[in-house]
Design a protein around this nucleic acid. Structure first.
Lengths: 96, 96
DNA sequence: ATCTCTGCCGATATATAGATCGGGTAGAAA
DNA sequence: TTTCTACCCGATCTATATATCGGCAGAGAT
């Protein structure tokens, strides 16, 4: 849990949107071939309107900050919020 | 439902094994990343000991005879028994 | 004005399951 | 013996989601 890296990751509206959408996947994403319990497929986030390569970069930023977990299944990568890191980050914020 | 094509398809022990295994997938296949309800992933049938290309050909034979259904999900193809065709074939056998 | 940082994009690279191809072999039929 | 068929295999091709690359643009800082 690196607070600085997390803050950088949160310093972009698209990445904050991604985290928000992941709170209630069924509300924000269209049906995918895989059950939502596997996570949300990376391509779903292209709903933000950015190109695939840009979305991929944002997701990588979130993942390397530990804010989301990833699970690769074949050609897909499924994303979930990482509530543990998020909680730890919130706790660390109290040192501000 | 083409009886002749079905008979040809059944004229090989590996293909009959495949149909038998599909009766009880959970008994004959190792865990796969996808739920069994999606069907059994093609590569699972390599347990018969044949090369991937040979297995692929056998599965294609079964599929084109209508004995199994296929569902492609990304890079995978999932197989299930096609009980409808099998029942129709059994019925047609009474004309022998 | 220039430097740096961040983000954007299109293009290309990567990885992988399955399909197809080319060639070889064994058995049955002629 | 020759021919035909079904089968086998390794090698190559295809398709597709995601990752990475190279270049460009705007915002701040100096």
């Amino acid at each position: 849990m690196d607070r600085d890296i997390i803050l950088k990751a949160l310093a972009h509206p698209v990445r904050r949107d991604v985290l928000a959408w992941l709170k209630e996947p069924e509300k924000h994403f269209t049906a995918q071939e895989h059950p939502l319990e596997m996570g949300v497929c990376a391509s779903q986030f292209e709903r933000c309107g950015l190109a695939q390569s840009s979305v991929s970069a944002h997701l990588a930023t979130l993942a390397s900050a530990g804010l989301v977990t990833t699970r690769r299944v074949g050609q897909w990568v499924f994303y979930k919020r990482n509530e543990d890191t998020i909680a730890a980050f919130r706790a660390a914020l109290s040192d501000l």
